[in-house]
Design a protein around this nucleic acid. Structure first.
Lengths: 121, 121
DNA sequence: CAACCAGGTCACGAGGTCAC
DNA sequence: GTGACCTCGTGACCTGGTTG
């Protein structure tokens, strides 16, 4: 079977080793979990941006393309996933900073970071 | 239902190394699985997934629409059973792989497989 | 009354849209 | 081109009727 399903347990989740949770309902679980710890469990509605985008460190609210990523990296990856060959890094020879607070992010380096960090179409 | 479901586990999440759970609710599942192993080894409640879905080879827990099928194929068939005419296979001319571990399953081919394997509304 | 299954529910995430 | 927002299909879980 897949790995899917099942579940049913209400126990801990320790994802160690690179576990990835790619699942639907599990996320909230995760989040709520954390919320519960700190707050008292309110888990508002949307705003569960307690997650950090693996690509740019911005806030994320779940998985996109199999990795915890923000809306902008999701959209970026969606548009550019197949363009790697066509892109060129014109500044730092492939070592540009692509974090969210950087003004003009190098497309080539951003895409490479996406791929490295596991985004997968 | 708010967040429906459950899972609810309120415990930690440690995402470290590379595990990947590629599923939806899998998280907890996985965990539980492991828990069960170590703990009492039982398959808790549902978990009678010793059966294999005739459509996608995923774990199944019984008959749905007259065939042994998983939750997802059951839901898929429920929604699409009458849509065969409207669907088109855009990739492999009607020969797409529709097993559970395939990322984007072709609806047309999945529905045809459902019908071929005997799902019947 | 326990097990089974059809159908309902709804969080999640992929893709679309559009103001900028 | 970018990124915030929206829409909708998917699938895990729930509910309720039926059957033994």
């Amino acid at each position: 079977m897949s790995d899917k399903k099942k579940n049913t347990s209400k126990n801990d989740l320790h994802l160690e080793n690179d576990h990835r949770i790619t699942t639907k309902r599990s996320l909230s679980t995760q989040l709520s979990t954390e919320l519960n710890k700190t707050k008292s469990g309110s888990t508002s509605k949307r705003q569960k941006s307690l997650l950090i985008c693996v690509v740019c460190d911005d806030g994320a609210h779940g998985y996109n393309f199999d990795a915890i990523s923000c809306e902008s990296c999701k959209a970026f990856f969606r548009r550019n996933a197949l363009q790697l060959q066509k892109l060129k890094c014109r500044r730092n020879d492939g070592h540009c900073d692509v974090r969210f607070n950087i003004k003009k992010r190098c497309k080539k380096c951003r895409l490479e970071k996406c791929i490295e960090t596991g985004l997968d179409q």
